[in-house]
Design a protein around this nucleic acid. Sequence first.
DNA 1: GCCGTTTTCGGCCCGACTGTTTTCAGTCG
Length: 544
Amino acid sequence: MPTNAEVAATFREIADLLDVLGETFKPEAYRRAARSIESLSEPLGAVEARGELRTIPGVGEAIAEKIRELLSTGTIAYRDRLLHEVPPGLLEIVRLPGLGPKTARRFWVELGIEGPAELRAAIEAGRLDGVKGFGPKKIAQIRAALAPPAGTAPSPRRPIEEVYPIAVGLVEALRRDAPVRAVEIAGSFRRGQETVGDLDVLATSAEPERVFDAFSKLPEIREVRLRGGTKETVVLSNGLQVDLRVVEPDAFGAALQYFTGSKDHNVALRTLARDRGLKINEYGVFRGETRIAGRTEAEVYATLGLAWIPPELRVDRGEIALAGAGTLPTLVTAADLVADLHVHLPADAAPADLDGLRDAARAQQLELVGVVAGGIGPDGRAVDLAAAVRARLRELGKDRPRLVAVEELATGAAPGDAGSGAYRLLRADAGPPPTGDGPTARGLVHLGTGGRPDGALLPWFAWAASRHLPIEVGPGPDRLDSNGARAALEAHAALLVPRSLRGGPLDPTGPVALAFARRAGARPQDVGNARPERRATGRAGPTR
DNA sequence: GCCGTTTTCGGCCCGACTGTTTTCAGTCG
């Protein structure tokens, strides 16, 4: 059975084919459905089995029928028919940078070109010279797109944890080198999406030209792609594209809202504005010619009668209705997190390292730290802290913030007596949930989604929920991403949000984990290491 | 093809930038 990602890719292909055929609104309808399907927290097969395909935003009867056809037969007859109609090579032309469906269609209809090879031959034979709309620069651009120099291939989406230190570094550099007042990263990075295609940086300044000058000179920048009066696009030496926009302070909130997206959220918002006789763009909210909001995001939402919506929820899956009714969930924040239960120390750690750890915990206002003192380390090998460290750990355990020993056990390991105040990490690396241990086991589950088929974790969620074990969320293959976290919450399991206690300001683990939890809609009471008084579920907190 | 606290039909976000243009088309986000 095809995965959700494969179904989405099929619909995107149909959209491209329809584009080339000159269809106007259908392609966007298929792309919208593809985006919705990708953000589902469970396999499409499960939705279909409940007869709820039509509840997916952007999925109507026609697309629902095509999903059923794809799930049961592995193909869609409509797609095959389109592929018969449109030469497959045209899809490659459409996907070249700077070219789109209109141009590809003209090549096909006017010049009989059906693929990249024919296009290249046509250019070399001079067949494009003198054709309306194709001047020398455009032809050179197409030639470059057809034969990209090594290392300039379009960069794929990257994990957000990989982009995080780059983004933090760019913001710091701009604050240091450029005359900016405010700087924020918008886009999918701000929404805490698992992967990031490019970075959207937004700044306010009285001197945009000087900001662009300073930005262009940053050492990590390989190439300036384009530069206008309000925006500049560059490519970093690692291939990541960064768009910098500079706006006036009165428009900062509107621009931040606009460039944070998501696209579907913005479309829904602007449709709502239009229905109320208003217009929203990146410069503000307008009634006629008059700007009535724009300085802050909250102001923009307020003009539409909406509460401010956290970026992580801006996906057009009902959050606008909730904001209108004032019933948005109160999402967990960094200030709610009072424990980090999963801190690894190196094998050669000294007692003094624990004091440093406690200082870091105090600085982050944590009340409890779980130090992995035995069991299986991050590299899969056995870890055992020195006796002196263990002794110091016992001493420190009496003071605040408390440090307690934590043990990591492999899947299905028999739960030993971890002792009072100790916590157990259960690594669920493979296979079904264990059956041998009792419901009294305390700890957390370190549960990876990496490489698993959709839905393979569902039994684990129920297992963890029944034992009040929170499941760790965050970047990397051993933690839940936001889709996994949402499914866990739906199964009434609690989450555990790690902090970056030993990492510096560039460590993505804590911030990214928090973003994933928030994307899943987690409230403080859904999080096992949030303040106990705000928590309803999860028992990994301090023993009292 | 989807969708509806004005709609089951008639709409479908909006602007920057580039290149080729004399007022605009295409692409991109």
